[in-house]
Amino acid sequence: MPEQRRRLVASFFRPSRGHLVASVILMLCGLAVTLQVRTLSTEQDFSTLRRSELIAMLDDLNARSRRLETEIASLEGTRQQLQTGADRQQVAQAEADKRRSELAILAGTAPATGPGIRVVIDDPQAKVGESLMLGALGELRDAGAEVIEINDSVRVVASTWVGSEGTTLVIDGVRLTRPITLEAIGDPHALSEALRFRGGLVSEISDERVGGQVSIVTESEITIGSVRPVVEPRFARPA
């Protein structure tokens, strides 16, 4: 064991005045170190910085905040644009939806409900022909019928045609069984008047030549459930 080490160990157990002085100084040293460590850990380390460094830091922060502010402004502008764009799109969407449901009723692709009349044509001699039927549909439309259905199965639309096979009426390829029921949604009063006027459907059918009977019932709520499939036009294109 070297001599110095032995001396160090020996003096460890043999206190002297020098030891006391060293202990006081080391105590100051430990105090200072813990003080500094605590200051650094509890405080932001700005307090130990010099003025020029603080100024540089402040400048840096100011520049950064200016940059961020311009960024915020531009982003807010973008958000505004996107929002108004989205609003406009929503309005257009709602408009289109409304228009689509209106057109669906018109084209017969959707069920419809509303006030209207139910007309039952009973002609035992089967003398109600195409022209009478076309006339009846024309009168109903003239009186503002929005949706027309025949025999609870044929929805009358723009492409509807009326023909006959012998004494049987055919509408859109469907043979009509008698009695024929017409249901129409529209102003009930106007619709029933359109059929009842002198020389109109009722008087023609009640005439001796046809010898039938027409009953007109006004309903506050008629539901028309038959629909048409959507047909892609093969020849016509939007111009």
């Binding site: 460890f12 206190p15 060293a22 080391l26 430990g30 105090l31 813990t34 605590r38």
Partner: peptide, 18 residues
């Protein structure tokens, strides 16, 4: 020995007396 004691006392004072 006193030196080490002094160091420990200083650290303890720094920590506990704040």
């Amino acid at each position: 020995m006193y030196a080490i004691l002094g160091l420990l006392i200083g650290v303890a004072a720094g920590i506990f007396l704040q």
